[in-house]
């Protein structure tokens, strides 16, 4: 059984063709597949990273961007610890859809889910959305922001490592409070028990998380 300190679920969403799968493959396999086919339903990858000497297992769920798969992919939001919302900086319509995606997230995801806005394809020279516009949007909606290029491997590692670090922070803060509130014990921080994270433990995290929102 693999040993790890924390297990986090990260879900990628965003319009079709913005580069969700390429970001995941760049990060997990270190490659950029030029003719990457469209995702059907949901794909799944695992990568173990090391942050401050701790082994962190990242479960990355890569969803299909096409609208008709929406009802299927929504069920994966709920147990996510982090949601990466991706748009293509060279394609205005993918940015215009962001409010729709946020509505989806609000409806189906945990209220405390970590949200990250990612403008992908910075290698392209036909940019349509200036960095500042993306940044402002993220700020308005309480999201982290990063621009990446899966092709040039720019900011991809940083994206996932920062998410891991932030989630660890959150989990540790919660561990502190859990001395008071025992219910929140095995929410995100599965601790060294870490063999598997069942959906249940994430759901219980949902409730205990919310207690923490206010503190």
């Amino acid at each position: 059984m693999e040993d790890y300190k924390f297990l986090f679920k990260i879900v990628l969403v965003g319009n079709a063709g913005v580069g969700k799968t390429c970001l995941v493959r760049r990060f997990t396999q270190g490659l950029f597949p030029p003719g990457q086919g469209a995702t059907i339903g949901v794909d799944f990858m695992i990568k173990t990273v090391e942050v401050d000497g701790d082994k962190i297992k990242l479960q990355i769920w890569d969803t299909a961007g096409q609208e008709r798969f929406r009802s299927i992919t929504q069920s994966y939001y709920r147990s996510a610890h982090a949601l990466i919302l991706v748009y293509d900086i060279s394609c205005q319509p993918t940015f215009d859809c962001l409010p729709d995606w946020l509505r989806e997230i609000q409806e189906y995801a945990n209220c405390k889910v970590l949200k990250i806005l990612v403008g992908n394809k910075t290698d392209r020279d036909d940019r349509e959305i200036p960095t500042q516009i993306g940044e402002e949007f993220a700020k308005q909606h309480d999201m982290y922001f990063l621009e990446t290029s899966a092709k040039e491997a720019e900011n991809v590692e940083r994206l996932f490592y920062e998410i891991a670090a932030e989630l660890i922070d959150q989990a540790r803060r919660k561990d502190g409070t859990s001395a008071v509130n025992k219910n929140s014990m095995d929410a995100i921080g599965l601790g060294s028990l870490g063999t598997k994270a069942s959906q249940n433990s994430c759901c219980s995290g949902f409730n205990s998380n919310s207690n923490q929102c206010t503190s």
Partner: peptide, 13 residues
């Protein structure tokens, strides 16, 4: 496999 969704999904897919 462990009897959880992620492990089984990963194996079968």
């Amino acid at each position: 496999q462990d009897c959880d969704m992620a492990s089984i999904h990963l194996l079968l897919s």
